[in-house]
Design a protein around this nucleic acid. Structure first.
Lengths: 104, 104
DNA sequence: GTCATTTGGTTTATTATATAAACTAGTCTA
DNA sequence: TAGACTAGTTTATATAATAAACCAAATGAC
């Protein structure tokens, strides 16, 4: 138990934050999603979504591609390889923990 | 998927924060632990542990009882019924999520 | 045409948070 | 009685999350 509990504090906080976990979860399920899809699927506000996407991009967990769809700007997001790896690792980490704790 | 992903953002943040998750995990396993035990088991700094314990107490998730052991002050912590309930709920929430995401 | 509204966002300001480092108060040791 | 140790708390700083305000362009109603 010792080791595992101690490890909780080393969890990937970029992903752990609920807003970002929601975003990354969606992206892991659909390979690519635009701003509006993420907005409705995650239930975040626009401002928060915008900030969190930037943070995920900074961490190189997602790529953001901006273009125009008709005359409107259009933002598309997808997990990068790094992001997919990090997400997989995060869940491994968390599931391992869940098992340990369930034993008690 | 929609509903579940949206739900991520409603997770219990008192428990979700890694430092506190570590504390609560330890307490769920041993019914009661003192400051030093928590210190080594969680790997937190004293300051951080102190603050997080106060926060958990404010939330009524743990009870803190202060006494003297010999001449030294001694702080003992234990989950309250509310805390146990919250912790159980937290994991239910998280496991449900894990299942949904694993399907993708 | 022009005024209000909507789209698709970003920026800013406020509040909360986590954390280390410094501090308190007292005890033990030599 | 000086120094080191115990058992914490408080404070200061840096990072965060969030809502609300803002912006530019497009569309719709009249």
């Amino acid at each position: 138990m010792q080791r595992e509990v101690h490890d909780i504090t080393t969890i990937d906080r970029i992903i752990h934050e609920p807003a970002r976990l929601a975003i990354v979860s969606v992206l892991s399920a659909c390979e690519s999603a635009d701003f509006n899809a993420l907005l409705t699927l995650t239930g975040l506000t626009k401002g928060n979504l915008s900030v969190q996407l930037q943070k995920l991009e900074e961490a190189n967990y997602i790529s953001i591609s901006k273009s125009f769809k008709g005359r409107y700007p259009h933002t598309d997001c997808a997990l990068t390889v790094t992001g997919k790896k990090a997400f997989r690792l995060y869940w491994q980490h968390y599931k391992a923990l869940a098992e340990v704790i369930d034993l008690e």
